[in-house]
Design a protein around this nucleic acid. Structure first.
Lengths: 339, 339
DNA sequence: TTGTATGCGTTATCAT
DNA sequence: ATGATAACGCATACAA
């Protein structure tokens, strides 16, 4: 049977209060000898405090919930990895939940976790029903947003400057002489609208009028990237450059292009976003806008734990710089045929 | 403040015992009217039972631990997704832990979870110190192994026939006329040794003597795939076909080959394993041995929950068939130059 | 410096 | 058919 605090107390010849004190390091007024005696007893019994019981007493569970759209998306699994690592270092566990951009699941996940065992939430998925999160926040549950700067959420946030990322990607295309630049954005991601705004701004800087038909919105999967590409290339005047708002979409474009015999980067320049494992798995290697995944992951965890201990949100907004990583899918615009 | 069972009882004008009964569906001897009254009160107060408290009473936490080598590896994140989905359907949460094939983390993860909040474990990572898991099992903690059939673990297992997968991949190469077939295997994965055995068996079937220099062991990352390829191609007689024991390794080979101007599949045939997102993200698309990820994920969860409720292991071994998916990286062996 | 007693929100046993 | 009450393992105010 598992040892309880009573077993330890008996073995050490003290009361449970004393044991409790050494567990919680309230050993201010305690003879060092008793402390050692208790510690020894804990060792020998292989005693570990029952988290459930101490949680009942108002202590936390040392567990955090991680809400992402889809853990099987490389970007999220990569950031989940860094979150997990950091959390473990700090003695926390992380429960993961994919919302699948599905309102029902969003709600169910939060319910599942809330009255259960988490001390706080990291949320990296856009909620269609924001009241779910807002209720949480109003009730004083620590929440830190990751990957999105949603003004509707008055909590701490860790994210990259998506506008800048979109801007710089587009500028890179423009500097290469492209004028017909399309963007494929993620329908439901807040970050994608920022990236689109950056794209628009870059166009403006170069005095180029945006075209509706060059702006496509879809879900961020490979298959949709292929579709988007197909549609774009049925246009009377197809783009010579594409900025895809995530790597999966970009991969889709590459696949579609291969299928149609369109060479990248000679006939089509392409930029992705995220710099996931996918970006280096393709040939040619994908030019993409990198997010500092490791630093972001570590930072959200630190911030969340800090707020859990603090008891309230610091409402910080931590903004990282995206970085355009030029690899092999971008190049000069093809000569325009003047007709 | 969160509502407790007392609040509900008061509101419904009954005792907490009665409320508890409707919570747990022990409504055998209960007037339907009271039951409804209680339910209504719960609704109105937005009452959710405190899992910690009920866990204290011996009920489980409805949480399972998922131990994988690395959640950022697409294979594991994809299977984690299906596990999560199924677990949620059944009202369970999943806590994920990457062991990083690091003995310290292995131990720490289990400790983190054990005395904490999980009702059982799904373990899909090879433990270098098996006693950690065996202690768990001996203590009656439900454990189901995923992805590996380790004879040292006397519990239920869900996995593919790795031997067969390795065998069929190699046979495919052989049928294409290849004789110089190399294998790149994952150093630490039990599954990889089975796949290697299948490879060896296939060779034997065709009367081909295995060559030591064609058998390379490494960690399953893209970078290592590149290195392995480089080494293989510095051999006096490089292979004309490679079987990589996971998709990442295979991607590494593709990248290395591109770098050296070696065309796939014309000059080199390549097969991967797992059929992750990576396999369809490359060009040409990767021929690979698929594991039925979705079915395996669903099955482990079902099995684990069953055993949690049952109170003991059923010690089932559920074996799935791998499936060779022939895409575009495999083809006929180049004509041999007789000299 | 250490121990006693109470409560945290449940479940379960036994009365009523 | 329903209610009173004792655990569960721990933290903490208060006593000693």
């Amino acid at each position: 049977m598992k040892a309880t605090i009573y077993d330890v107390a008996k073995k050490a010849g003290v009361s449970i209060a004393t044991v409790s004190k050494v567990i919680n390091n309230n050993t201010g007024n305690m003879r060092d000898s008793t402390k050692q005696r208790v510690k020894k007893a804990m060792e020998e019994l292989n005693y570990h405090p029952n988290v459930m019981a101490s949680a009942l007493m108002g202590k936390g569970t040392k567990t955090m919930g991680l809400l992402v759209p889809d853990i099987s998306n490389p970007f999220f699994s990569e950031i989940a990895k860094t979150i997990e690592d950091r959390a473990h270092e700090k003695g926390y566990s992380v429960i993961m939940c994919s919302t699948d951009e599905n309102e029902e699941k969003e709600k169910k996940n939060v319910e599942l976790l809330q009255n259960k065992l988490v001390d706080g939430f990291i949320v990296s998925s856009t909620y269609s029903d924001k009241s779910i999160l807002q209720d949480l926040i109003r009730n004083g549950v620590p929440v830190v947003m990751l990957t999105q700067d949603d003004p509707a959420m008055d909590v701490s946030k860790v994210f990259v400057d998506d506008f800048k990322g979109g801007y710089e990607a587009t500028i890179h295309h423009l500097q290469n002489g492209h004028h017909n630049i399309a963007i494929i954005s993620e329908q439901l991601a807040l970050a994608s609208v920022k990236r689109t705004e950056g794209y628009l701004q870059a166009l403006k800087t170069y005095g180029i009028r945006p075209r509706q038909e060059y702006i496509v919105r879809t879900r961020g999967k490979i298959a949709n990237g292929i579709k988007a590409f197909d549609n774009l290339f049925q246009l009377p005047e197809p783009p010579t450059a594409i900025f895809a708002c995530n790597d999966q979409l970009a991969i889709g474009v590459m696949l579609g292009a291969k299928e149609r015999g369109i060479r990248i980067p000679d006939q089509l320049s392409l930029i992705g976003f995220d710099d996931t494992i996918l970006a280096t798995a393709t040939y040619p290697r994908l030019t993409t806008v990198a997010q500092p995944i490791a630093r972001m992951g570590k930072t959200v965890v630190n911030l969340l734990i800090e707020e859990i201990q603090l008891g309230h949100s610091r409402k910080e907004r931590i903004l990282y710089n995206p970085q355009l990583i030029i690899r092999e899918t971008t190049g000069k615009a093809p000569k325009v045929e003047t007709n």
